[in-house]
Design a protein around this nucleic acid. Sequence first.
DNA 1: GATGAATGAGTTTTCATTCAT
DNA 2: TATGAATGAAAACTCATTCAT
Lengths: 190, 190, 190, 190
Amino acid sequence: MEAIIQAAAQLLTDIGFEGLTTARVAERAGVSVGSLYQYFPNKQGLAAALVDHHAEKFSAAFSQTVEASGHGTLAETVEAMIEVAMAAHPQDPKLYRALNELAPRYRAEKVQEVGSRIAAIIKEQLARHRHEIAPDLDLGDAAALIEILLENVIHRAIERHPVSVSGERAMDQCRRMIMAYLTSGQRHAA
Amino acid sequence: MEAIIQAAAQLLTDIGFEGLTTARVAERAGVSVGSLYQYFPNKQGLAAALVDHHAEKFSAAFSQTVEASGHGTLAETVEAMIEVAMAAHPQDPKLYRALNELAPRYRAEKVQEVGSRIAAIIKEQLARHRHEIAPDLDLGDAAALIEILLENVIHRAIERHPVSVSGERAMDQCRRMIMAYLTSGQRHAA
Amino acid sequence: MEAIIQAAAQLLTDIGFEGLTTARVAERAGVSVGSLYQYFPNKQGLAAALVDHHAEKFSAAFSQTVEASGHGTLAETVEAMIEVAMAAHPQDPKLYRALNELAPRYRAEKVQEVGSRIAAIIKEQLARHRHEIAPDLDLGDAAALIEILLENVIHRAIERHPVSVSGERAMDQCRRMIMAYLTSGQRHAA
Amino acid sequence: MEAIIQAAAQLLTDIGFEGLTTARVAERAGVSVGSLYQYFPNKQGLAAALVDHHAEKFSAAFSQTVEASGHGTLAETVEAMIEVAMAAHPQDPKLYRALNELAPRYRAEKVQEVGSRIAAIIKEQLARHRHEIAPDLDLGDAAALIEILLENVIHRAIERHPVSVSGERAMDQCRRMIMAYLTSGQRHAA
DNA sequence: GATGAATGAGTTTTCATTCAT
DNA sequence: TATGAATGAAAACTCATTCAT
């Protein structure tokens, strides 16, 4: 039931993972607990479905937008990736936080899978600009690093962590770091 | 009681946070539940103490080693920071994961505080090499970004996430990214 | 659940309030603890329901009988009130005692409310015989005093307190006191 | 230890019987729990001592004052008894309430004993005025009834029960009832 | 004697899950 | 298929009491 997942997400936003009980989810969804168990094998299953739902949502948004906007220069592509990554995350910090609590616990593989997907998309984009990128740079490594950076700069921003460069500046710095990394030669190796 | 924290860490490693009950911690520590509650106000308090313990351990290791090794070039300093960050994390993935589950839930402020501390240390080191760094780069922003990158590249490595550049290569890339970022000029701005 | 209240009353009679645990009540009622908590918010709620149950029972018995038998002389009416007050109390001293322990703790308002109700009924009866009562006597004051006297003479009788006039004599004296009070003039004022 | 009983009484006043733990009593008394158990066999013993302490205090105050002031008329004697009964009760409603919770639970016999003592004193006083009292009245019965009335009118007043005649009026009515009872002949018998 | 850390049985309460209707 | 009352294992936490120092 779609409604059940919606209800779970709402409750996650409203009261967090602590108070998320099957009874409350069912009530909010307007069905009985019994019905909930008709659609999900157990609470873990519900949590997994919820994580999957949002992971897919993010993944789809990211891939669509990045692929759609993929015609400009390398700089423009990087810019686009940063923007869509920001936009595609749940903007409500409470929901974001709760999902981050759920995800590694109930759906570690999914998290990895989506991470891989995002990295693959980034790699594809980088490949389209191979000539602008330092030739000795492995695109897989680069994509991985960029994915990590993107995800976690955004994480900090959403959590309003004091150690973060906020808003616009954060994105500027992020872009700068990525561009410098992609275009610099080997000269800095130890 | 030191023994209780040790027991809690052990259980965290062995069975994860799910099964962490006050009774089990007390049993493992060889004391009674009552004694546990004599030293910690409640379960949260125990979790917080556990998080603090490891956070302090990491923070101390990082600051000591970085400050001790602070005499070389910028590249050497960055190298040192990467190495110590890697070395100072709990190497057991299970314990690492469990602490990462506990930390934001029971000790969000501590997490932020330690993050700030690490960033401050990084900034100090960067300041010592101001002349080697692009003059238009804000050192605070740079330190924040480096801290995020370091923490999460290591996170991925410990979690054996497929989207990560493992071991040596990861560190190479990380260093490359940081060095490129620090030494490149503005030319890449959009 | 009616059965749960019955079980609680039984346990109160058998083992007193000290050993009254939710688990035991549930067991005695033949249901699970979970069911108990489906019907009562917590232990206090159960205690309150129990007190209310008996308070209402007493209140109803008193008001019905007194109002039904309200046709005789003042002396007969007083007689009736004494008799019904005696008859309507829980006759098992253990239950009576336990309820008296519970009532002020968990349902002070209810106790007062029922007291007020009884007093109001008494006042009504007195009003019906206004001409037989000393004209300078405030009927509200008189009803209050009579209610206190009735309740506590019965209390002593049930508790088998040595300072009490037992059984028939107690009632005789009680009636005598009430009648003397109601019909005497002011002459005794200090 | 006198200090322990004082501490228990204070805690009873401050936080009620619910939160009265041996540890808190010991702390408030400035001794260790161990010492508490040196002077009292267990918690019940402490409670019993506390009840006894206050019961004796009341009993002594009542008997002394009544016996001291026993020279006037019957009306004056009754007046004196009412006054001293009021004055000798713990005036803090919280302490009064808490003691009333403790007394029947831990010291039923003491309660009865003190009741008997008070009744005996009253009877003695009545005997001194035998000629003013209806000759067919049993002085034991009369003392018992008066004791009940006194105790519970005061009880209501302290509890601020709505069914009570407050302050001065309460005492006036009480006196009137007692005097009417003592001096009226049999004529009111049913 | 005095101390107070240690004990652990016992309480209340929650909540995922089942199953008769 | 949907319901939701019933279940009961499990958890957190308390506190009277002991006893080694």
